[in-house]
Amino acid sequence: MMMMLVLALGTALAVGPERSAKPEAAVPSSVARGARLFDGTEPLAGTLSGHSAPLPGAATRCIQCHAGPGKSTAAVSGFAPLLDRRQLREILPRRGGPPVAYERTSFCRTLRTGIDPAHVTLPRAMPRFDADEDQCAALWDYLTQALSQ
């Protein structure tokens, strides 16, 4: 009887969680960087429309006003829209303008200028970011990652 328990325990340990667990998919570096930019771990320089003084890093964290991929709209206080693949890539009416969808180029232009693809100006509370191409690409990759649908 004791021998059977030892064999059963040894077998269970041999095929335990390590063997049955699926390996996690590696997160592309641009998606990881985009997440850091979104949550403010990596600062993103910006100003308010009509002002030249740079905003403090805490004021330019996207997550302060927007929910990101995998979050529900309930997580957003109504102050700013949810930012994920569907919200950015789907053709939707925005800010009273005609229906449009974002592409990476228009997303980056909007971050920098505050003017969306329908030529509607974002609210003044939305910072105008001094994002370089790599920062923009990383944010876009994070926000539009396939898992965020």
Rank of each mutant, 00 (worst) to 15 (best):
C62S: 02
K22F: 08
L143A: 07
E24F: 11
R33S: 14
A138Q: 03
R36Q: 14
R85F: 01
P54R: 04
G46W: 05
P23E: 07
A32D: 13
D116T: 04
A67I: 03
G68F: 10
L139H: 07
T121Q: 15
L122W: 00
L55P: 00
V27C: 08
P28Q: 07
E103D: 15
D141R: 04
L44G: 01
M3D: 13
K22M: 09
L111A: 07
M2T: 10
D39W: 03
M3C: 04
A101K: 13
T60C: 10
R128A: 02
A138N: 02
F38L: 05
D84T: 06
A131D: 13
K71E: 14
A131E: 11
R104D: 08
G68N: 09
V31L: 08
S29D: 11
T41V: 12
T121W: 06
R95I: 01
S29H: 12
R109L: 10
V15P: 02
M126T: 06
L5G: 01
R112H: 10
M3V: 12
V27W: 13
A32Q: 14
G68D: 11
V76S: 15
F79V: 13
P43C: 00
A26W: 03
R33I: 00
Y102F: 15
Q145Y: 06
G70D: 11
V100C: 07
A137D: 15
G68T: 08
D116P: 11
T144F: 13
D39A: 04
T11H: 06
P127S: 02
Q135Y: 05
Q135D: 13
H51K: 12
A58Y: 06
V120C: 04
R124M: 02
L9M: 09
D84E: 12
V76R: 12
C108S: 14
E24P: 05
A146I: 03
T60H: 07
V15R: 08
D130Q: 01
A146G: 01
P56Q: 02
L143W: 00
L147I: 07
L7M: 10
S20L: 09
L37Q: 03
P69S: 09
P81G: 01
P23I: 00
A45Y: 02
L13A: 11
V27A: 05
A21F: 05
E24A: 12
L147F: 15
V31A: 11
F79R: 12
A118R: 03
A146P: 14
S148C: 01
R89W: 01
M3G: 01
L37T: 05
A12H: 10
M4C: 04
R112V: 06
T60W: 07
H66T: 06
I91E: 15
V31S: 11
A125Y: 00
R128N: 04
R109Y: 08
V31W: 08
G96W: 02
P28R: 08
Y142S: 03
R36M: 11
L139M: 09
G97A: 14
D116C: 07
T47R: 15
K22S: 09
L55Q: 02
T110E: 06
R128E: 01
T47E: 10
T113W: 01
S52G: 11
V6C: 05
S72N: 09
A146C: 00
A35V: 01
G114T: 03
R19N: 08
P81Y: 05
S29E: 14
P117E: 03
M126Q: 07
